[in-house]
Amino acid sequence: MKHDFFFDVAHMLAGGLVLVSFLMLYQDRLYALINVFALHAFVLALSVAWQAFIQDAPHLYVTAVIALGFKAIVIPVALHRIVERLGIHREIETVVNIGVTMLGGIGLVALAMVVMLRVTPTADALAREDLAFALSVLLLGLLMMVTRRNAVSQVIGFMSLENGLILAATGAKGMPLVVEISVAFSVLIAFIVIGIFLFRIRERFDTVDLQALDSFRGDSE
């Protein structure tokens, strides 16, 4: 009985993460996108904390705090400031047709379910569901990177993909804390590097639209 309750809550939180990923897919304004990303990281932190509780693994609380601190607060605030300084907060991003993207996203989630449920028949039910959701989040993050043109939203797509990885890692028992911390730091460093590049790109080309980079290389679409 108690186990069922634990399972249901974990299931709900992981499902919530997938739902927030969908929310991100159809945001076409950058501020809204960043806010939804903060929500994404918040739900991840909740999910990780719940896993820490039911697996009785205190080091996962550290992971949850890192997720909350860095991803839900530091990075969104920093992204806000970047967008402000770049002066692109009013831009409406040209996204590939939202309806099609959403349908594709649904297809990806279905694919993730099918794959995961097929390949892990012997695993623990909780881990299975968790892995399936994690793969969905990962694929949706990739889908976002593919369909967006703006460099900021690509960064956000990348970060949400990484959230999926953390969800998978915490669902599987026994991931060492060192790995978590190093992943968190590498994401932070990637964020800093990408941030610097954004400004450099902006200085050079007056835009952060990736298409400008392509046309600078001599092959525009």
Binding site: L111, L143, V146, R149, D214, D219
Partner: peptide, 15 residues
């Protein structure tokens, strides 16, 4: 190829 196409290539290979 353009950056987005590379991403799309990796993505479609994964799918």
């Amino acid at each position: 190829m353009t950056i987005r196409r590379y991403l799309a290539l990796v993505f479609s290979a994964l799918i």
